[in-house]
């Protein structure tokens, strides 16, 4: 059984004047020990999907539908104390900006110890001991001293290591990483990526790794899921996606990437046009206005999921046309 199983996930934000359909029918499974990279442009719904897994989207201003199962638990049914016990213990999250995601007025040691005490009981001293162990594990130099540091007293890379230590404090089974290296310098980025991959293997974590950088996705992931306008448009093993992309959007992403000659961290903006307004989606394929392969049928019919190879799924009405190495 998968560690993470999303079926028909819909998230609609209802706070504004018009409902915003940020996630529209996402199906995604992640096995124990597997890393899936969630790839897509800004605003495609990656973070919202990730937050839905911890039920972190504002409850009063959003509507969530579908089924979310994590480590055998029905996340949609969790309430109160059960939800608290789930968050950080079964599944935990790493954020893009550690400088914003850590409480500025608590020491790092206190923030980790607090989590340990919350989930496992025991003394604060035991929590600090765990924090020290984790700081060693994520290779923070002078860990004893750094435990007493405040977030602003550390460099970006060290802060993100501390954030990783915090996320792993209670030995979760699922790790949700939301662009964990985007805010870092290139060299630091590689170190943190390598560390994450190492820890993911060691802990046997099921990981969803959000990024908009294909290079990063290739480096860390076993599978890639490409998201566009709140929907997964293509998913498959990394090699398969790289060698044989079948969705026009994925093809565009890869081509943009090649054009930029492996420039790490480059934004995925080389495909002309802009993503659609999620509060006023036209019928048919959401990518149609930007698609080189689009035909009249595309703005009428909603593409269904289709297996083009084992484990390789695509949502495109013209997947037969994209097979040929198009010019």
């Amino acid at each position: 059984m998968s560690a993470v199983e999303l079926q028909g996930l819909n998230v609609t934000f209802t706070g504004g004047t018009k409902p915003v359909r940020a996630v529209r029918g996402v199906d995604l499974g992640v096995d124990r020990g597997e890393t899936v990279a969630l790839l897509g442009e800004s605003g495609s719904g990656k973070s919202v999907t990730l937050r839905a897994l911890l039920r972190l989207n504002p409850e009063r201003k959003s509507r969530i539908e579908g089924s979310i199962r994590v480590a055998g638990q029905d996340v949609m049914a969790l309430r109160g104390r059960a939800l608290e016990d789930f968050r950080g213990k079964v599944a935990s999250m790493i954020f893009q900006e550690p400088s914003l995601a850590l409480d500025p007025v608590y020491t790092l040691g206190a923030q980790i110890a607090e989590t340990v005490v919350k989930h496992e009981g025991g003394s604060r001293a035991a929590g600090w001991a765990r924090a020290l162990e984790l700081f060693r594990r994520v290779r923070i130099p002078e860990p004893e001293r750094r435990l007493n540091a405040y977030p602003h007293e550390m460099s970006g890379g060290m802060r993100q290591r501390a954030m990783i230590a915090l996320a792993l404090a209670c030995r979760p089974q699922v790790l949700l990483a939301d662009e964990p290296t985007t805010a870092l310098d290139a060299t630091v980025q590689i170190q943190v990526l390598l560390l994450l991959r190492e820890l993911q293997r060691e802990f046997g974590l099921a990981t969803i790794f959000v990024t908009h950088d294909i290079g990063v996705a290739v480096e860390v992931a076993d599978r890639i899921a490409v998201m566009y306008a709140g929907r997964i448009v293509e998913t498959g093993p990394v090699r398969e996606i790289i060698r044989n992309p079948r969705h026009p959007y994925t093809i565009g992403l890869l081509r943009a990437r090649m054009g930029h000659e492996q420039r790490r961290g480059a934004r995925l903006e080389a495909i002309p046009g802009a993503p659609p307004d999620l509060s006023a989606l036209p019928p048919g394929c959401a990518f149609a206005p930007r698609c080189r392969f689009a035909e009249p049928v595309c703005s009428v019919q909603d593409p269904a999921e289709e297996a083009v190879a084992p484990q390789h799924l695509v949502r495109c009405l013209r997947s037969a046309a994209t097979l040929a190495p198009a010019g």
Partner: peptide
């Protein structure tokens, strides 16, 4: 949000 995410 991060505090909620860690289960507080």
């Amino acid at each position: 949000g991060a505090l909620r995410a860690k289960g507080l």
